[in-house]
């Protein structure tokens, strides 16, 4: 079975600084996969490489069997890869609904705008209440919902989430992970990059541990949660 997203020996970085070394991982259709690891492990760089915001130095990234090497950044979404960026990156001075409209910016998504808007509002009723509010004026948790909603507006095959819990109050973090479960239940294939190891491992099927730019361990969420190494270093028990 061929994976939906496949990274083979990917190395990448910024200028002369290398952030990823020989990263190999895959995400199958229907799965939820996490990449966990501490600050500075290269998790965000990994997602930036997948969404072509930076170029890989060596190795290859393929989506549905097609190499992304020559794909331009704005075409990534057309393939069905949608990203919820770190710190949400909403358009702060656009309203919630305008942000969602931008999520359906690409040609193929425009005719389905109204239908998907209803779908997002059904998933996040709070967004419907706030639809005329400037996105930048909402709370962190609401902004995260809006960012996820925006990513869903393109009707993605694979949803990439970059640190969805970062910078949020603990009680909100809990609700964000509840949202993750909801989105999984909708049948989306999801890849999450996250520092909150204990929480994220309860949501996903499999995970990779990334440390200083290299994959150090991988396995099912249950296996990793049970492993001594992860227990000591990340779960803090």
């Amino acid at each position: 079975m061929s994976a939906m997203l496949e990274l083979k020996n990917v190395s990448a970085g910024y200028g002369t600084f290398q952030a990823l070394f020989d990263v190999t991982l895959s995400v199958n259709a229907g799965e939820a996969v996490a990449v966990i690891g501490p600050n500075g492990a290269g998790k965000t760089t990994l997602l930036r490489a997948i969404s072509k915001l930076i170029n890989v130095k060596s190795g290859d990234i393929a989506f549905e069997g097609r190499s992304l090497a020559t794909v331009e950044p704005h075409r990534i979404i057309e393939l069905g890869l949608s990203q919820v960026p770190e710190h949400r990156r909403l358009f702060p001075r656009l309203t919630v609904e305008e942000n969602l409209r931008m999520g359906a910016y690409m040609e193929a998504a425009r005719p389905k705008f109204a239908q998907r808007l209803e779908m997002v509002y059904a998933l996040f009723p709070r967004m419907k209440e706030r639809r005329h509010q400037m996105a930048g004026t909402m709370s962190g948790g609401e902004q995260q919902m809006c960012a996820i909603g925006r990513a869903l507006m393109s009707g993605p095959k694979l949803l990439l989430l970059d640190e969805p819990s970062a910078g949020l109050a603990p009680v909100i973090v809990q609700s964000i992970f509840d949202l993750m479960r909801k989105i999984r239940a909708e049948g989306y294939t999801v890849m999450i990059v996250e520092q909150n190891v204990r929480q994220v491992l309860k949501v996903v099927d499999r995970a990779y541990l990334l440390e200083v730019g290299r994959i150090k361990a991988s396995g099912s969420a249950a296996e990793l949660l049970a492993s001594d190494e992860i227990q000591k270093a990340y779960v803090g028990l």
């Binding site: 950044p73 979404i77 949608s82 358009f91 001075r93 931008m102 910016y105």
Partner: peptide, 24 residues
């Protein structure tokens, strides 16, 4: 036009604009 939406998005968050499919 859509150009205005695209340019507004770019001026507020360039990376996010690219990731929703705007050819920045």
């Amino acid at each position: 036009s859509m150009m205005r939406h695209a340019m507004q998005a770019i001026s507020q968050e360039e990376d996010a604009a690219a990731s929703v499919g705007v050819n920045v």
